[in-house]
Each structure stands twice: as C-alpha cells, then as structure tokens.
Write a protein that binds this DNA or RNA. Structure first.
Lengths: 154, 154
DNA sequence: ATACATTTAATGTAGAAACATCTATTAGCG
DNA sequence: CGCTAATAGATGTTTCTACATTAAATGTAT
C-alpha cells in the first residue's frame, strides 16, 4: 500500500517530505513486525539487539559501554537491558579484572539457543527486501549514510 | 559516517540486512534530531505529528479515530496525545453532535502559531534529503511502499 | 601522593508507550 | 422495540525510555 493511503495524506510538500515520512512510517512498521515475531519468545527488539551483539563477540566478553556503542539505539539503557537478559539466563555478567569499574558480559548457551530459534524469523523478515536488487539495497544504504553526514544542517 | 562505523559492525549477512539495520538506525537518528529541535518548544514528535494532522484539516474538526488513522505510529494513544495538546492550549475538543461517542478536535490559534515557529526547523530537517534528486526520492519511496506490501511473508 | 576530573555502570524518577479493560453510545437484527 | 454486538474514546497498569544523579574506580596533573 502506498504511503499516501497508509497515512491518508494526498499531497506532500515535496518528494523529500514524502520520503522522510515514508522512512519513519516504514521503519515503525518493520519494528512492529519484529516485535510481533519476538513476542512469544518474551524478548524485545532491544534485548534481541544486545543478544546479537553478544553472539557477534564469538565467546569473548564485551563491556557494557562497548555494547552501547554497537546498539542501533544509542540512548537505550544497556545496564537494564543486560539485567533483563541475566534474569532470563540468556547472558552472564562478570566483573572485568583489568578495569574494575567495567563489567564483562557474555552470552550463555540459553542465549545462543534462543538466537538460533529466532534466526529464521529474522531471515524471513529480511527476505522482504528481496524485492529490490542487492545493488539497489547498497545504493539506499549509501544514501542513508549520507543523510546522517551533514551534521551542520538542522 | 557509514553504518559500519556507526554500529561498529564490519560485515553484514547481506546488503539487505545492512539496509534493514541502516533503516532502523537512520530513522532513530532522524527522530532524535527532531526531538532535539522540538525540545525547547516543549513538544514531542508524536504531539507534533498530531498538530500537523490538525492543521491539515484547514479548520475542520477531526475525530480522534481519524487522527489515529493518519498517524505515523498507529499504536500511539491519541486520546492522551490530544490531552497533552489541550493542556497546552494548542487544540480544542468538542463533542461531536452527530455521534456522541466521538469527539471533534480542532487546532487553536496557539497551535497554528507554534507550527509556524517549528516549520523552519522541519524544512531544514527535510533539506538533508536534497543530496538526492527528486526522482531518486520518489524511487526510494516507491521501494519502501513495496517493502510493506508482501504481507504474506514474515 | 593528593586532589580533581573522568570514566563506567547502576539507579532514581518522570513521563511515554504498549496493551488490556471499561463506559457510553450507536448499529444491526430478530 | 429489546437485545446483543460493535465502535469511540477514556482510563488503568505495567513496562520502557529519556534524562539526571550517584558511586566506585581510574586517570591526570601538580
């Protein structure tokens, strides 16, 4: 369905305004789809994001602050997200020896197992993007990178 | 800055995964920029979205449920958003005569004045998109529309 | 070494989002 | 008409977010 229909707006000030609204609308829609898939596994997209970062470490511990750096949403409270994963036995937390302020976080077997269950959902979710070519995907990615570039504006 | 740098992930499973993450990351970034601009005017992006919908009615009242239909975030609680606007005298609420369950909402002079103040911020914000042509913007909008189309998947 | 600033993570708090429930009104149908 | 279902919007509740503050450990400069 077109963005015009979805938000019942017939005219836009410019193709740029339309794209801006479409980006926000489509992303919310994607996130909602993700949330729906995850619901029965009692995990939020944010918690999933942390889990995937932990898995990406291949068994090596990672500090809370380094998790934050890798998150899609930098303003999220990583401490409390890790708390949630701990409570569900999806991650372990040990104090870091070289810097006792820091805390090392590692994914558990349960965490890895859950990710394996979720992987097919994510793959299906990503397969939506197959309607465009890989080149187009790269091209849009490059454009999004550019959008965030000119920090001087706005 | 590239998405690779921003979320410190060197490799992606596919250009599609990269695009998915980039969409979510960039949209959060855009929303954050908007939030920042609006902060000194004590209005949230969601409230702004409602206000703009009200202005779009050109003085005609609109029901709460119709506002929801036009919102970017359909799951937001429009009742309470309207409450907030009322408290700030940015909108008026009168009960609808033809259907006494419904409620008519109209933007006030204060609301219109605030939007006029915010307009330049939004224009600057949208001008970020000038790095691409109008045709490209339309093209990407069309791709995003398509993404949301195949409801059968995922 | 001491004092002060910085970093790291946890916590407190107000407000917002997500979701279910409730109330009033209207619609539909026998 | 009288009954049940559907709709509109408000409200309750739990969880999450955004932002500020705190506490402990480390860095740094004199």
């Amino acid at each position: 369905m077109s963005i015009e229909t979805d938000i019942k707006q017939k005219k836009f000030r410019s193709p740029f305004q339309k794209l801006a609204l479409n980006l926000m609308y489509t992303t919310k829609w994607l996130e909602y789809k993700q949330l729906e898939s995850f619901k029965e596994y009692d995990i939020t997209p944010q918690q999933y994001n942390v889990l995937r970062i932990l898995r990406g470490q291949q068994g090596n511990p990672i500090k809370v602050s380094d998790i934050t750096e890798r998150m899609l949403d930098k303003s999220s409270n990583t401490s409390r997200l890790v708390d949630k994963l701990l409570a569900k036995n999806l991650a372990k937390r040990t104090s870091c020896e070289s810097d006792r302020r820091a805390v090392d976080v590692v994914i558990t077997e349960d965490g890895l197992a859950l990710l394996q269950v979720l992987d097919p959902f994510i793959e299906d979710w990503e397969n939506r993007f197959n309607i465009i070519s890989e080149e187009e995907a790269e091209q849009i990615s490059a454009l999004l990178d550019k959008l965030r570039e000119n920090e001087n504006q706005a």
